[in-house]
Design a protein around this nucleic acid. Structure first.
Lengths: 185, 185, 185, 185
DNA sequence: TATGAATGAGCATTCATTCAT
DNA sequence: AATGAATGAATGCTCATTCAT
């Protein structure tokens, strides 16, 4: 494992723990046991570390969400997508942090935000298909996506909070609530 | 308007624009035109400014959410609560930022987070009543609250994004989706 | 003597010894015994220290050159001006360094360079008068000024070199050479 | 063109543009497209690049100044030498920068400075001959050289300044002024 | 001959905070 | 109540240089 990877990995961990702004380069350097200049040999500046990290994490985002999604059953598709996203965030806290911070933080350049947006393309397609098939009511697709996404996020937040033990039962309830909202009456 | 208020107001604006971590005391001082020491005369440290700001913003949170909520009609209650929360966030971006950052950021002490939690008491009651009245299915109440809350947040985010013009139509769709999810079949 | 003056004085000495670029802020801080942040309390950045120093040094430049210059005798005027400039540079090495570096160095903003230029106004007038009085041949006045100035600089350089002891005799020779060059045949 | 030459050439250009101190090795490396270590393969350190460059530029200095200088006519000799030097500096800005910086900058070792000095030997001889032939007044020869040299430099500076268009007329005036100063009355 | 990873001292600057007035 | 001089740790970054390949 070369120094560059070490830096990336360390940064990943620190940001996950503390957020982007709270993570200083000095901390990254100290934690990773790499020399000051070494970081700058591999990265142009601090932002580039974060950008690279972000790209690493999001590049497989689209495929992750669609993993094991069956061909036909639109309801099953919903559950699987929902859980895929949920587990992805739970297992990739940084990806979650990034997703949450994307809208606001100026640290993440617009180009990246746009790139992230495109990963949702598959989700958008899903909802449009659902509407065409008369399963979902014909709501605005951006609203649908955002609510779907937000529902997953809400559950991840409960999970993260750690004060409450999140059970499978709760997750299934959330999926059910989420699903029902979009249905045609 | 005394110096203390000026500092609070300036901080409010800066945090809204840039987030908590990105807002430095020097910036607050420069922007507010107040002297270095004056800030420290009124506040013990930077954290105290934020805490005080947070308390200012959230103290009327509970009443805001319940404003104009009718006695009987549970569906109308839902819409009004939903919109109250939505408009509150749209008009108080800092409150929104805080809400979003509460879960994660270590800058906000746990005591405050707990305090914030209690404001949701009214919402919790609402859902419990709804379940008792057999309008809502008996989901876990924390899940319900969090999803309700998250749905509002999702819409605020669309609104904030500014790329898309959020119309009343979209808001009504969101409320409908949100409401349907919780219903008994 | 307040901290700001100490910083200015220390910087003056260091730049005189080492040149502008060779003088680091850390050095200024160490040498002046002032805290890091104190410097930045008084100056916006390193450039501002240099600018302020430069203005301090050059503001009396014009009057210095014309000090004790007699009314009538154009030859005596020449000698006095020449010596005024010479001694000014010898006694204000930084002013000399600055003068030398003005043309090239990008550290000194154009606005300052222009300001410096205007101090030469008196010298320009002197030569124009001399031409009108048929004492000097009618050379281009910028050429005359620049050569006059350059002659002084040449002698200061010999003086600075320290390898050769510069005697009054040499200075007088230089003034004579300088004077004769401009004369009408 | 091998890597070593590329490095030298790039350094030459950068120093000409920015001065010695402002030119960093990293810049040289970036600009020349040569690898980090390659520079250190060819040069012991940064100073050696500059030294080598300096020697390259000055080695033909003596011959340049004396190029096409006629045998007899002492006045014609003066003009030619003057113009040779002028054009040399105008065409070799780095040589000019070096000449200007020689006296002060500690980056250039004394040994080099002495070496440069010796190139002026021919000029020294010229003036001594002139004095012997009773054309020049018997001024100190170092003073004469330095003023001669300084006069050329003054014109180069006007030329460099670019604000004023330097015409042949001006150059001829400068040569005339320069020449007249040294003459026996 | 040429490469580029690695280093750590040093740089200019920003930060939250203290304290005398 | 209000000021602003003073502090020094910390930040992001550049530098010249070393070394194994």
């Amino acid at each position: 494992m070369n120094k560059k990877s070490i830096v990336l990995q360390t940064t990943l961990e620190l940001i996950t723990k503390q957020g982007i702004r709270a993570t200083s380069l000095s901390q990254i350097i100290k934690e990773s046991g790499v020399a000051n200049g070494t970081v700058y040999h591999h990265f142009k500046n601090k932002e580039e570390i974060i950008t690279e990290l972000y790209l690493m994490l999001t590049q497989d985002f689209g495929t992750v969400v669609m993993r094991n999604v069956p061909e036909d059953d639109i309801k099953k598709q919903f559950s699987i997508m929902w859980l895929n996203l949920f587990h992805y965030f739970v297992n990739n806290p940084l990806a979650f942090v990034f997703s949450e911070q994307i809208a606001r933080s100026p640290e993440i350049p617009q180009s990246l935000k746009d790139k992230a947006r495109q990963y949702y393309g598959e989700i958008e397609n899903y909802f449009k298909t659902g509407i065409r098939k008369k399963v979902f009511k014909s709501y605005n697709s951006m609203v649908m996506e955002e609510l779907f996404f937000g529902n997953v996020v809400s559950l991840v937040k409960i999970h993260e909070n750690e004060k409450v033990k999140l059970l499978d039962k709760h997750i299934n309830q959330a999926i059910e609530i989420s699903w029902k909202g979009f249905l045609r009456d």
